[in-house]
C-alpha cells in the first residue's frame, strides 16, 4: 500500500550512506531552526529597540505579536486579502497599537522607577491577553492553507517548504529595511541620539516623545509582521500564543546583547538553531528549558550579550 523503506535505521547502513542520511537530517534540522529563529529575531528586534531607547523591557511586546497575528488572520479570512496586503495592514495596525500602549501606559511612568514601568508592562501584557479572550473567546483559529501557493523545493534530499523560505525572505527584508531606517534616515539618527543621551538630544532640538513613539511604532510593526508570518507557517493562532515566543525573543535579545540591533537578529537565529539541535539530539521536551538555561548562562558569563561591550553604567 505504501513503499517499504529500504533503510529503516541509518545506524545499520553503510557508512557512506549513513553519513549522508545523517547530514541530510542535520541540514533539515538547521533549516527548521533558522525558520523558527527568524521569527524570534523579528520579535527580539522590537524588544531590543525599545530597551535601547527607554531602558524598558516591554513585556507586552509578545502580545502585540499575537494581535498582529489576529489582524492578519481577519484581513485574510474576512476581507479576503492576500498575504502581502494582510502583512502590511497588520504592520500598520500594530504600529498604531504600539504607540497607543506607549502613550497610555508607559509615557506617564517615564520618570518613575524602572521596576514600576516593568510591572506596568506585565500588567499591559495580561490586559491585552485577557482582553482578547474576553472579546473573541479563547478558542484557537487556523490560518487558511495555501494563501501563498509556494511549492517546497528539494536541495540535496532536504525538503524546504516554500513557506519557510518566505519567512526567511520577509525577515531578512525587514531587517535590512530596519538597518536602513536606523542608520540612513533622520528619524533613525534621532533614535540613536535619544538612546545615547535623552537630555542632550532634547537640547539639540530633537522631539524625544515623537522619537520614542516612532521606536514603539517600528518595533510593534515588526512584531505584527512576525505574527502574520507565524500564522502562515504554524497555522494555529490563539490569544495566549504571544507568551512563549515573547519570552524566547527576550532571551534572544539578551543573548545578542540587549539594545543592539544586529545582536537581536543573531540572537534570534542562534536560539532557533539551538532549540532545533536540542530536539534533534532527542531532548525535545527540554527545548524550552534549554532556551532559559541559555539566558541564565549568558547573564552569568557575559551579561552584556554576545555583541555587547562592557559599559559601566552611569551613576
Amino acid at each position: 500500500m505504501f513503499p517499504i523503506p529500504i533503510f529503516r535505521d541509518w545506524e545499520f547502513i553503510p557508512i557512506s550512506n549513513g553519513g549522508s542520511a545523517f547530514m541530510e537530517q542535520l541540514i533539515q534540522q538547521l533549516v527548521n531552526g533558522i525558520s523558527l529563529g527568524s521569527i524570534y529575531a523579528l520579535i527580539a528586534l522590537g524588544y531590543t529597540m525599545v530597551y535601547g531607547i527607554v531602558k524598558l523591557i516591554n513585556f507586552a511586546h509578545g502580545d502585540v505579536f499575537m494581535v498582529g497575528a489576529f489582524i492578519g488572520f481577519y484581513s485574510i479570512t474576512v476581507f479576503h486579502l492576500g498575504f502581502f496586503p494582510a502583512l502590511l495592514i497588520s504592520m500598520a495596525a500594530c504600529a498604531i497599537f504600539g504607540v497607543l500602549i506607549e502613550r497610555i501606559a508607559y509615557k506617564p511612568l517615564r520618570n518613575a522607577t524602572r521596576i514600576a514601568a516593568l510591572i506596568t508592562a506585565i500588567g499591559v501584557s495580561l490586559f491585552i491577553e485577557y482582553g482578547t479572550i474576553y472579546i473573541r473567546g479563547a478558542q484557537p483559529e487556523a490560518y487558511p492553507n495555501g494563501i501563498v501557493p509556494l511549492k517546497s523545493i528539494e536541495i540535496l534530499g532536504v525538503k524546504i517548504s516554500g513557506q519557510s523560505l518566505l519567512i526567511l525572505a520577509v525577515s531578512i527584508f525587514l531587517m535590512i529595511l530596519l538597518q536602513f531606517i536606523v542608520h540612513k534616515t533622520k528619524i533613525g539618527k534621532a533614535m540613536r541620539a535619544v538612546s545615547h543621551d535623552q537630555d542632550a538630544a532634547k537640547l539639540m532640538g530633537i522631539n524625544v516623545n515623537n522619537t520614542i513613539s516612532a521606536t514603539f511604532a517600528i518595533g510593534s510593526a515588526l512584531a505584527g509582521a512576525a505574527g502574520v508570518v507565524f500564522g502562515m507557517y504554524y497555522t494555529k493562532i490563539e490569544p495566549l500564543m504571544g507568551i512563549i515566543p515573547g519570552l524566547k525573543a527576550f532571551v534572544a535579545a539578551v543573548l545578542g546583547g540587549i539594545g543592539i540591533l544586529p545582536g537581536a537578529m543573531a540572537g534570534g537565529l542562534l536560539l532557533g538553531v539551538i532549540e532545533a539541535l536540542v530536539s534533534a539530539a532527542g531532548f525535545s521536551l527540554w527545548r524550552d528549558g534549554v532556551a532559559f538555561v541559555v539566558l541564565i548562562l549568558i547573564l552569568i558569563f557575559r551579561p552584556a550579550g554576545l555583541f555587547g561591550k562592557n559599559v559601566r553604567e552611569k551613576v
Binding site: 517499504i4 523503506p5 537530517q25 534540522q29 523558527l36 532549540e275 532545533a276 536540542v278
Partner: peptide, 13 residues
C-alpha cells in the same frame, strides 16, 4: 519540525 525530522530519519511504516 525537529521531532518529525527525527521520525522521518527512521522511515517508519
Amino acid at each position: 519540525n525537529a521531532q518529525l525530522t527525527n521520525i522521518k530519519g527512521k522511515n517508519p511504516d
